[in-house]
Amino acid sequence: MSPLRLEGGKLVANDSGSERVFEYRMIDGVPILIDFEQSVFTESEITCRKAGSAIVRPEYTGLQRSLKRMVSPAKSGTRVNILNLVRHLENNDGPSKVLIIGGGSVGNGLEPVYNHPRLEVYSFDVYVTPYVQFVADAHRIPLPAETFDCVIVQAVLEHVLQPSEVVAEIWRVLKPSGLVYAETPFMQQVHEGAFDFTRFTESGHRYLFRQFERLDSGANGGPGIQFMWAVDYLARGLFRSRKVGKMAKLACFWAQYLDHLIPAPYAEDGASGVFFYGRKTQRVFSPPEIIAHYRGAQATRR
């Protein structure tokens, strides 16, 4: 994809691979960089809601915000992983460019990235918020290759139809040896309704990023958090009430702290979510290697 240019009030880019010319419109000054021929969204739909979110996201204030933080605190694993990522980027000469996919809000534990003086953060999502510079579909990121030092994709890959295509785009826009950090659900119920498609085991998630060298990976939220989610959906199913489900989840908020007692192999087999932290490479992780990669509790110990 070539750099964007302004022509006749529209943003235009060329795809060198297909020789297509893409023309994008703007809504209230925000570029809408979606290839509607390859997206679940339609141009009329985006225009009708003025690029607002298709999902109603409640605002939590006061007591509700405190209760929300109680059942969904920042994961300690995420905090550690993000600090490691920041330390790696600090070794670069000059500022590092970070692309956040699905950055409609500041993700769980990402404050060190947004607040760091030497990190230039660029963000997009499929809807407009104060945190995004443009609206786009991650299946086709409308930016030139080898642009970014790091890409963060947190709680997004479950919401795209073709995760492998999104990961290929991440690889494309990263500079050589660029870093990627991803978090994706494993044993988690449907959320965001019609816009929820996929789940990954730790091994499946690692193979999804097979064009990347693994720096770290594992469970991100263990069986305790997964149990809390399950209680929520059990209650809402029995009583046909989302509110009752949330009350049941609140009553079991303590279960998440049991994850601190669970060894990593057992956590990976029953994780609520998984993470991958890696570096762009030219070597592709082979199918036989994924079998040897498995480190869960069911691995054969010798």
Results as ranks from 00 to 15, higher is better:
E268Y: 07
G62D: 02
T184P: 00
R25S: 15
M1E: 07
R242M: 09
H159C: 01
E43P: 02
F275E: 03
F253W: 14
I34M: 09
L261E: 10
M247A: 15
H293K: 11
L110P: 01
V173I: 10
D259E: 11
R5E: 12
L99Y: 05
F134K: 01
R87Y: 03
V160F: 05
R301C: 09
A168W: 01
P58E: 11
M70C: 13
M70E: 14
Y294V: 07
S123Q: 09
T78F: 01
D269A: 10
A194F: 13
D196C: 00
I27S: 10
S241N: 05
W171D: 06
Q188I: 05
I262F: 02
N84M: 11
P142A: 09
I141G: 04
A155P: 00
N84S: 14
T147Q: 15
I290M: 13
R210G: 02
T281Y: 01
L261G: 06
L161D: 08
R25N: 12
P3I: 06
M247P: 01
Y60Q: 12
H116F: 05
R214G: 10
Q189W: 13
G204I: 04
K10F: 11
G178C: 05
F186E: 08
F227P: 00
A194C: 11
V284W: 08
F285D: 01
A264Q: 14
V180M: 08
G102S: 06
R172I: 02
Q188C: 14
V12D: 03
K10S: 13
A267N: 09
